[in-house]
Design a protein around this nucleic acid. Structure first.
Lengths: 121, 121
DNA sequence: GCCAAATATTTACACGTGTAAACATAATTC
DNA sequence: GAATTATGTTTACACGTGTAAATATTTGGC
């Protein structure tokens, strides 16, 4: 089953650094999300059930570590969107952002570089 | 409230051509989705409630027309993904697909062209 | 050894979603 | 005009999600 959006917030914390305890996760995410301890615990337990994280006892608490990699998660999410909305093709996606004026100068520069590098292969 | 995934399937049909009746929508989508009539009706009613479509009577049935444009929907979805996973920036997204070898030759050619056109502005 | 603090586990609850069955109503056909 | 057909409307139900309260358990401190 898929990792939900709230669960992904917890995963992001763990992807930044792991292993971590529920308390540490709350400390990092609490301010932004305004969550209670119980909320984080529930999310962690659901992530455990989904095998997206594992837990190991550390004294009286657990430390959580991702089993699902960010790369894999990002791939799934991105591919989903691409397939659903852009017929699986990248260029139309970029064209869309271009039309929406969502390409920054930095984006354009980086895309140029990226394409150039593709040449050299 | 957001248009859900099953609802979006119905929207796609209406975006291809509208107005359309529930029956027509089912005919187009049924084979792929294996839905019953009632399912389509429910989805249409939810879309009505969300103001994503409007309905006008046509004899004994209704004809449905999108109120939410595909452009707008695609923008919302795309921006959501971009913000959640790529810090709102397009180049890293494309880099991701590049690393995953998801860029076809056609994509690359189109991206080149797109960048060239951005030059001429 | 008992209490309080820290932590985990269980249970909850409202809402959205996917999926339709059941029911209502209106028009059509015989 | 009664039965059938087409269509819409209401209700349902299981599951996931966001959010947590309630409860249980462990353990460190006295």
């Amino acid at each position: 089953m898929a990792v939900s959006e709230a669960e992904a917030v917890v995963m992001e914390v763990l992807w930044r650094a792991a292993p971590r305890s529920a308390e540490e996760i709350l400390a990092e995410v609490g301010p932004a999300q305004d969550w209670q301890e119980g909320t984080v615990k529930s999310l962690l337990n659901r992530l455990l059930k989904k095998k997206a994280v594992k837990a190991e006892r550390d004294g009286r608490r657990y430390l959580y570590t991702p089993l699902l990699s960010r790369e894999k998660y990002v791939s799934q999410e991105s591919k989903g969107l691409l397939d659903r909305l852009f017929d699986g093709r990248v260029a139309p996606l970029v064209a869309h952002f271009s039309e929406q004026r969502k390409l920054t100068k930095k984006d354009v520069a980086e895309l140029r570089k990226l394409l150039k590098e593709l040449d050299d292969e």
